[in-house]
Write a protein that binds this DNA or RNA. Structure first.
Lengths: 278, 278
DNA sequence: GTACGCCCTCCAGCGACAGGAGAGTCAAGC
DNA sequence: GCTTGACTCTCCTGTCGCTGGAGGGCGTAC
């Protein structure tokens, strides 16, 4: 019979941990002195503890380890658990790799530009959203206000479910003849009018940046997010969205208090794999 | 001014999380109603929140994020933090990869052998330990008892600091003329006798398995651990140790109650990298 | 006598929230 | 003006695998 300290030295597992395993019922000492409460382990239990440690090193939770050990499962069941575990672990690994990739991409961005101009770009999944819209080719980006004017004229403004936004359908930047869509989110049940298109915004992965400032400085934020997309190994994959989180009436091009979100749909650009369904 | 629910929808951050960020002082709403306690956020704060999310996605803790945001640090400091972060993340990634490797290795082992015979092998670092020993070439492995006999004859048994063990110095399995060392752990201050060698066991990475059963079944455990070492991409790297956790007097070859730990020093066997210093 | 060196139990803390109870608040419809 | 239902508040608990510490008991060596 070994006292907990001896057992701890032999197994290289801390006394605290052994007590914890006792508490959660994972490894109970073969004998406990009723009077002193001293735990006594037998050498044979080292084998049991080894099994616990092995499963722990495979990434199983103590709860799962408990089930595995007491279930005494077949090879086939074990194989199943391991395959599940492998899938989980692959997911985790992927996440950690992506995280590392983001850190490295940012370091690279900083190295490239001497400017500290690294406004926060984040990756997120947009929520699906029904919207009403008018789509038309307009002379320039900043003329989209007229489309919104037409949209609001035909439209009961109270049905808006969030900030209105624009979709730029062109594949590249254009100085004129912009294929633009002025949109307003509406309720799911809304079906549209004759003059107004009604569609569902799909769920899609986007790189997003919040632009605070006048519209005539938007290009800076565009450059930032596009550089970020490139540095992170993504590829623009669908029309860019511009969400007017805060703007005024009448609309001005030089109002510093406006807040706009730019969303760039993206897909992975590594080894031909693709993400996104826009 | 946006109520927390609106802010949550716009940012896609849960209400709970927003309240938590308020509590820890990471993002306080611009206004809080004194009477109702309602939090009111301004659209501008979306930018702040975006910064928080960006840093979070880089793997920083909320604590660090708080420091980063309020410190308003220089490009050089930012670079430093990112490099530190990168190093940490690389470490984590390595761990997760190793974990996945172990899972896959075990799956492979199961696939190879139909037997469920997967006694727990774990990877650990041995602790440095001073020991007294006698080393000699003996006819066969099971003759090591005689060495221990000689060792104990010259040796005050009470100085033992743990279970005695053997070291097999041969590079490969031998049926005769085994280069064996019978060892007993002693206190750090112990300096040895004339007839007895005294040395320090170095800290080393080992694959370890607990064998429960008679000595004449030890080969099964040896096979298991050696297969594990191979499947996990390691290489035997130093003399194998056999630790007699439980044995009896007189020593027998067929006593089922004996417990023995086998420790196989290992080094990485991938791309020429090496671990271990035995 | 006392000073270690064990061992015990019980409680708090970590990090980043999620879930839920119980109660108050707000805006719209009647 | 009242009800209803959606929204919000605070406060408490739980997560996971331990670690650290307080406060106390027991046994042995000096």
């Amino acid at each position: 019979m070994l006292k907990i300290g001896d057992f701890s030295r032999l197994s290289q597992v801390s006394v605290k941990t052994l007590r914890y395993y006792d508490e959660v019922g994972l490894l109970k000492p073969t004998q406990v002195d009723q009077v002193s409460g001293y735990r006594y382990y037998s050498v044979v239990q080292l084998r049991q503890l080894h099994r616990i440690l092995a499963l722990r090193d495979l990434g199983f939770s103590l709860d799962q380890i408990g089930h595995v050990l007491e279930a005494d499962l077949s090879t086939e069941e074990l194989r199943g658990m391991l395959r599940l575990r492998r899938a989980e672990q692959q997911q985790r690994l992927l996440k950690e790799q992506e995280c590392l990739g983001r850190v490295e991409a940012l370091l690279q961005l900083i190295r490239q530009e001497s400017t500290t101009n690294t406004e926060a770009v984040i990756l997120k999944d947009t929520e699906p959203q029904r919207f009403a819209s008018i789509r038309k080719t307009i002379p320039a980006y900043n003329q989209v206000g007229q489309l919104f004017g037409a949209l609001f004229r035909d439209f009961p403004g109270s049905t808006a479910r969030g900030p209105c936004f624009a979709i730029w359908h062109d594949d590249e930047h254009k100085d004129q003849d912009v294929d633009a869509e002025a949109c307003i989110p509406v309720d799911e049940k809304y079906q549209g009018l004759s003059t107004i298109r009604c569609a569902d915004l799909p769920m899609v992965k986007v790189a997003s940046v919040i632009h605070q400032g006048a519209y005539n400085t938007l290009t800076q934020s565009y450059q930032r997010v596009l550089k970020w997309v490139e540095a992170n190994g993504y590829q623009v994959h669908g029309p860019i969205r511009e969400i007017y989180l805060q703007c005024g009436e009448p609309l001005r091009q030089d109002d510093d208090s406006y807040v706009t979100e730019i969303q760039v749909p993206i897909a992975l650009d590594r080894g031909g794999r693709r993400v996104g369904n826009y």
